[in-house]
């Protein structure tokens, strides 16, 4: 149990960083996903094309590439920076950006399939009482669509939480230079090569602690908020 006493706090810190990555990316990807879905069902052709282009490009690009692009392309080449002084902060937000835009395309497509489950009559009735397109989407269609895709959305968020490990590729760390979980795991294994299995188990369990509740909450919520027809 030397491992725990020596490295316990570093492991917790690394999961704290993973959790922060997942939290912000989760929020931004949900918001951006709703915007993209709105684009994709918009009556304006240009918006539909933009939505489709974004989804097809990002959904079919490996996350590692997107992640590298934010650091080398956006930050180094184009000079986009979230924090000029503190490199670790800049990298953190670049990783959140990469995860958010990447995951938002999956959120968008899940939402779009949810929109297809809402009977056409709902949108027609909303139009018939004089709601505009955006009101219709915001008040009638999206609330019903969201409720029907809570479980698939949870799968997207679980995948996103695990995808935070890709942030290791651009060296996301805390202020005290602790890596996010996968980077920390690798560092620990290099130092404790006799306990590799144990380290695996600790980190696998750590991720399950983060992701299992997402599934449980989604299961409960999809029942609680189900739209009865």
């Amino acid at each position: 149990m030397d491992l725990i006493s020596e490295s316990g706090s570093a492991i917790l810190t690394s999961f704290g960083l993973t959790l922060r990555l997942a939290f912000f990316s989760g929020i931004f990807s949900l918001l951006l996903g709703v915007v993209l879905a709105t684009f994709r069902v918009s009556p304006v052709p240009v918006l539909r094309w933009v939505g489709a282009a974004v989804v097809y490009t990002l959904r079919n690009t490996p996350l590692t590439l997107v992640m590298f692009f934010t650091l080398f392309g956006l930050s180094y080449q184009l000079g986009v920076s979230f924090d000029k002084e503190l490199l670790y902060r800049n990298n953190f937000w670049l990783a959140v950006l990469a995860l958010s835009v990447y995951t938002s395309t999956f959120v968008c497509e899940v939402l779009r399939s949810g929109i297809n489950t809402v009977p056409l009559g709902q949108a027609e009735a909303a139009r018939a009482i004089g709601l505009t397109f955006t009101q219709n989407l915001r008040l009638i269609v999206l609330p019903q669509a969201l409720r029907s895709v809570i479980n698939p959305l949870a799968s997207v968020l679980i995948a996103m939480t695990k995808n935070t490990t890709v942030a290791v590729t651009i060296g996301v760390t805390t202020a005290t230079f602790v890596n996010e979980a996968s980077g920390q795991m690798k560092a620990l294994m290099e130092r404790n090569s006799d306990q590799i299995l144990l380290i695996f188990i600790i980190f696998a369990a750590g991720f399950m602690i983060l992701t299992l509740p997402i599934g449980f909450i989604a299961g409960w919520a999809s029942k609680r908020f189900a739209v009865i027809r």
Binding site: G121, Q122, E124, A125, A128, P143, Q144, I228
Partner: peptide, 13 residues
């Protein structure tokens, strides 16, 4: 213009 549909179309949620 008020409209009443064959299938009611009340907002289910």
């Amino acid at each position: 213009v008020g409209m009443v549909f064959q299938s009611f179309n009340l907002f289910a949620h």
